Simulated assay, not measured.
Amino acid sequence: MIREAVTCDRDACAALYLQPDDRPGLDLDELIERAGWVARPALLVRPGRDDQEVTGHTCPACTADRGPVLELGDCPACHGRAVDRLDGAHCLYCRTVTPHGDDEI
């Protein structure tokens, strides 16, 4: 299956959002907003062409000034590295908490 992906536009940030397999029919823009990503308009100037509006993205870690994401891992929001705690996996960057499944307790 081919999935859409979004990357953070901040310099040196490796954050990544992959469209989940289990969310068919939901719009990617809606999914990234739910995950804490910010879409922003930007101007792209090309020689010989008019300014064109494009969309840039900022990951939840950079939005909260806790980025850039330097190590990739299993965080569903930014793919940053997470550490396991009693209540779930905590992302070191965006601080998303992913509860443990019933089989992991």
Rank of each mutant, 00 (worst) to 15 (best):
E53R: 15
D74Q: 12
R46T: 14
E4N: 10
D87N: 07
A5R: 13
R3A: 12
C13S: 08
A61L: 11
D84W: 01
P24N: 05
D65Q: 14
A77R: 06
L70G: 12
L92A: 13
R34K: 10
H79D: 06
L72N: 14
R46C: 03
L92H: 11
D103T: 03
D9Y: 00
L18P: 01
P76N: 10
L44E: 13
L18K: 11
H90P: 02
E33Q: 10
R85Q: 15
E4T: 02
I32K: 06
D11I: 05
G73E: 09
P99R: 00
G25I: 08
A64W: 04
A15E: 07
E33V: 05
G48C: 05
P41E: 10
P60K: 06
L43E: 12
R95M: 12
I32M: 07
H90N: 03
A12E: 12
P41A: 14
L31T: 03
D9L: 01
D74A: 11
I2A: 14
G56V: 00
P47W: 06
A12F: 10
A12S: 13
R66K: 09
H100Y: 02
G88Y: 08
P47Q: 10
L26I: 09
C91Y: 09
T58V: 15
Q19D: 05
R23E: 12
D9E: 07
G25R: 08
D87Y: 02
P41K: 14
D11L: 08
D103N: 03
I105Q: 05
D9P: 02
E33M: 02
G36T: 11
V38Y: 01
P60R: 06
D21Q: 12
V97K: 04
C78F: 04
C75G: 05
D74N: 13
D27G: 01
L70P: 01
V38I: 15
E71T: 15
G67P: 06
P99G: 01
W37P: 03
D102L: 00
P24R: 04
D103E: 14
A77P: 01
D11E: 14
D65I: 09
L31S: 08
A35M: 11
R46N: 08
H57T: 00
D27H: 06
D84E: 15
D21Y: 12
G25P: 06
D103V: 03
R40C: 06
A89P: 00
R85I: 06
C62G: 05
A89K: 12
R81H: 13
R49I: 00
Q52W: 03
C75W: 10
D87C: 04
C78S: 08
R95D: 14
E104T: 01
A61E: 12
L16A: 01
L16P: 02
D21K: 12
A39R: 15
G56Y: 00
A39G: 13
R66E: 15
D9F: 01
P99K: 00
G101R: 03
G101H: 01
G25V: 07
